[in-house]
Design a protein around this nucleic acid. Sequence first.
DNA 1: TACAATTGATACTTTTAAAGTATTAATCGG
DNA 2: CCGATTAATACTTTAAAAGTATCAATTGTA
Lengths: 298, 298
Amino acid sequence: MELRHLRYFRMVATELHFGRAAEKLHIAQPPLSKQIQDLEAELGFELFTRTKRSVALTPAGQVFLVEVTQIFQKLDRAIDLGRKTSRGELGKISIGFVGSATYNILPVILQQFRDRYPYVQIELHELTTDRQLIWLREGRIDIGLIRPPVIDVYLGSQVIFQESLVVALPTNHHLAVLTTIELSSLAAERFILFPRQLAPGLYDPIIAICQAAGFSPQVVQECIQMQTIVSLVSANMGVSILPASIQEAQRQGVVYKPIRSGSGAADKLATMSIFWRLSDDSPTMNRLLELALENREL
Amino acid sequence: MELRHLRYFRMVATELHFGRAAEKLHIAQPPLSKQIQDLEAELGFELFTRTKRSVALTPAGQVFLVEVTQIFQKLDRAIDLGRKTSRGELGKISIGFVGSATYNILPVILQQFRDRYPYVQIELHELTTDRQLIWLREGRIDIGLIRPPVIDVYLGSQVIFQESLVVALPTNHHLAVLTTIELSSLAAERFILFPRQLAPGLYDPIIAICQAAGFSPQVVQECIQMQTIVSLVSANMGVSILPASIQEAQRQGVVYKPIRSGSGAADKLATMSIFWRLSDDSPTMNRLLELALENREL
DNA sequence: TACAATTGATACTTTTAAAGTATTAATCGG
DNA sequence: CCGATTAATACTTTAAAAGTATCAATTGTA
C-alpha cells in the first residue's frame, strides 16, 4: 500500500464518481479503477459498492475514510513539526548561567528568544562555572554563560558582554561621599571577593588592577553568591569590587562607585562568554547562539 | 511522498546504517540512499546528518520519526477497523419491534447478537407496525420485528417466530377452572383486543377462528399495549385471545388457557416476521438477519 | 421498445520511476 | 600508509503506474 492508494481512495470517496475523481487527480480513469481495486485486494474488504452506473461507500469504506483523512492530517502535522524543528522554532534548549549573568545579558537574551521562538521550551540552570563545563560536556546543558577564560577544545565560545568594575562600599564608609574612587585609597580595606577557583576570570583582573594601583588586597571573606557579598558589605564586613551590572539590584546599606580610570585599566574588565559544544549542530542551539551574538555588548 | 519513503526512513532511523537498513528492507543500498534523499528534498529539511562513516538523526528527524511511527500505527488501526466493519463486528444497528416481541424472540436475538458482536452498538425502538414501516423506509431503523402480512416491494421479510394463541381469563371467571377452553364457550363473552389497524396480522386470525367456532366476538375495548389488555382482563372488563408468549409476563388476577385444538386451526397462528430494506447490504444488518434466521421457531 | 448517453471495467501499450550493478570517494583503525 | 567500511554517484534493468482504445451494463428518453 502506498499513499497514492489512499489519496485516490479519498478522491473517489469524495466524488463518488471514478471519471470525475480521475480528472481531479489528473490521471485517466482506468488506472484509477485499477489502483482502487488493488487497494481493496490488499485491504481484504470492499471500499465501494459499484453498479455500472453508481458508486457508494460501503460501511467499511466510511470507517476507513474517516481514519485515512486523519492520517493525512497527521502527516501534514508531521511535516510541519519537522520543518519548525529544523528551523529551531520548535524544540528544547537547556541554558546554564552564572548568577551574575542574571543582572545583565541573560534577561535580554531570554526575552528576545521567547519572542522569536515561542514554542521552544527553555530550561534554565544557575550553575557555577565548573559545573557548567561538566554539564555542557555531558549534554545536560546546551549553552553556558560563563566568565572566561576557559580552555576546552570540545567547546566553542564567544565573548558577548563586557562591563566595568565598580567598588561596593557600606553607606557609612568614609569614601562613600566621593563620586569616583581612586583604587589606591582602598589599600588598607578588607576585601570580600568570589573564590578564585570558581571565577578566575573575574578574580584575577580584580587582583591585577589592585596591584597596578600599588597594593595587594587583603581578602577576608570569599562568597559564592554575589548577593551574599553585597549583604556582607552592607553589614560593614568589608568592601568589594564587582561587575557594574550588580547595580541593577540595588540594596539598602550599600553604594556603588566607579573606579577612577586614570590608567583606563579598570574599564570593561568583567567579561561574559557564551559556550557551546562544537559537536552540537542543533537548530535551537544555533538560533540561541545567533541571537546572543546579535546582542553583544562590548 | 509515498509510504515507501516513510517505511525506508523508519528503517534507516532505527538502524542508523544505510547498508543494514537496505538489507532488512530487501533492497540494495543505492536506491535506499536515493529514496531518503528524495524524501528530504520534498520535506525541505534534512532527516539525517551523515558523514562518510556514520549516520545520525537530526532533531527534525527525531521529531518526524515519532510522528511517522504514529502514522503507521494509525494506518494499522484503520485497516483493522475497516476489516471489522466489513465483517459486521463493528458498527451500529437500529432495531424496531412491536411490544409483543419483548416476550419471545427479541431477548433471544439481542443476547446472542451482543455475545457475537460486542462492539456493535444496538439502538432499540418499540414502535407500532405502521411506524416501523415508515422508519424502515426512511432508514431510521435497519431491522423491524413486525407481525405480517405487510406488502412492500422495497422490503424483504422472513417469518422468524410462530406461536399459538391462548385465552386470557380473569381468575374468578367460571371457565378458569378448565385446563383448555373450547372457543365456542366464549361466544357470549366481551372481548378486549388490539385495534385491527395496528395489528391486522394478529387481529384477523383471532376473528377467523372465532367465526370458525360459530360466533363473531363482541369487541368492547381496543388497546395498543398488550399489558393494558391483560390489566383490563384482570379487572374483569372482559376476556382476550393473545399470543402464548404473553405467559412469560405472569400477572395476578389473570389466567391463560390453551384453546382446545379440535380443528387445529388455533395452532401457531400468531407469527412474527423480520423486515429489512432490500437495498440495505450493510454487514451489521446482514449479521443480525443471519442470526435471527438461525433462531427461527416455527 | 429501442437507442443514445453514461460509466466502470478490461486488454493492451507507453512511460515513469524504483531497484539493481558497478564504481567512487571519504573516513577510520591498525 | 593501507585496507576495510560506508554512503554517494553513474548508469542499466525492471516493475508498475499511467495512458489509449474498447467493452459491457445500465439508465432514461424518444
